[in-house]
């Protein structure tokens, strides 16, 4: 049995290990793309079937919060990308500060999202709980809102996981920035950016349609 090394015995070097970890994260992202893909197909199918209802339902979403959340998420991604760049022993405090900023923005996103949910509850837009919409469009609008809630809730769940991940990474970086943690931060950042990309598309599909009519 080989003596204890800095990296597991199936790897030949710590660089080998880190590249392997990054590749693993890309495979995981591919999986996630298809997870949201199933929902997106459902969305397009019903948008095709009920265009007017989807446009009307879309107008009932809060574009101010939606756009603000998009900006928040894009900025948090920017901070995380900077944190990856700033990862080193000398600049580890900057790196931790950047990560903390991203965490705060991530939590702000979730808070805004829940404000949006409660507004929708008051406006009777939650399917199954006293749903109330223009009678002619009620079917399509319900389908829109089922999609809306499942997709955004799933995304918010990813956000919470991401925030927890960033918090762990910030702690590790603060304590001891090693090459292993650089790889971990790199993979964690990939995940965070991916969650951002998902939101970019959800924003385009949920908030933007029907605004011009």
């Amino acid at each position: 049995m080989p003596e204890a090394k800095a990296f597991a015995s199936q790897f030949v070097s710590s660089q080998h290990r880190d590249e392997t970890a990054e590749l693993g994260m890309w495979v995981f992202i591919a999986t996630e793309v298809l997870l949201f893909g199933g929902l997106i197909l459902g969305y397009f199918v019903y948008r095709h079937a009920y265009p007017a209802a989807f446009a009307a339902a879309s107008r009932h979403t809060d574009i101010v919060i939606g756009a603000a959340n998009t900006a928040i998420l894009l900025t948090s991604s920017f901070l995380v990308a900077c944190a990856v760049d700033a990862f080193s022993a000398e600049t580890r405090k900057i790196c931790v500060a950047l990560l903390s900023g991203a965490i705060v923005l991530g939590l702000t996103f979730v808070v805004l999202k829940s404000i949006e949910y409660s507004d929708e509850y008051r406006e009777h837009l939650i399917p199954g709980i006293d749903f109330n919409f223009d009678a002619a469009l009620t079917n399509g609008a319900q389908l829109f809102f089922v999609f809306y809630f499942v997709a955004t809730a799933l995304h918010a769940l990813h956000m919470l996981v991401g925030v927890a991940l960033l918090a762990v990474l910030a702690t590790l970086t603060y304590r001891l920035p090693s090459s292993r943690h650089r790889a971990a931060l790199h993979s964690g950042a990939l995940y965070w950016h991916f969650v951002d990309v998902v939101w970019i598309f959800l924003f385009a599909l949920i908030y933007l349609p029907g605004r011009s009519s």
């Binding site: 019903y46 079937a49 319900q142 389908l143 089922v146 999609f147």
Partner: peptide, 12 residues
């Protein structure tokens, strides 16, 4: 009780 495949609300 409501869902994306529910034919009662026009689901397929």
């Amino acid at each position: 009780g409501v869902g994306i495949f529910d034919p009662r609300i026009g689901g397929d």
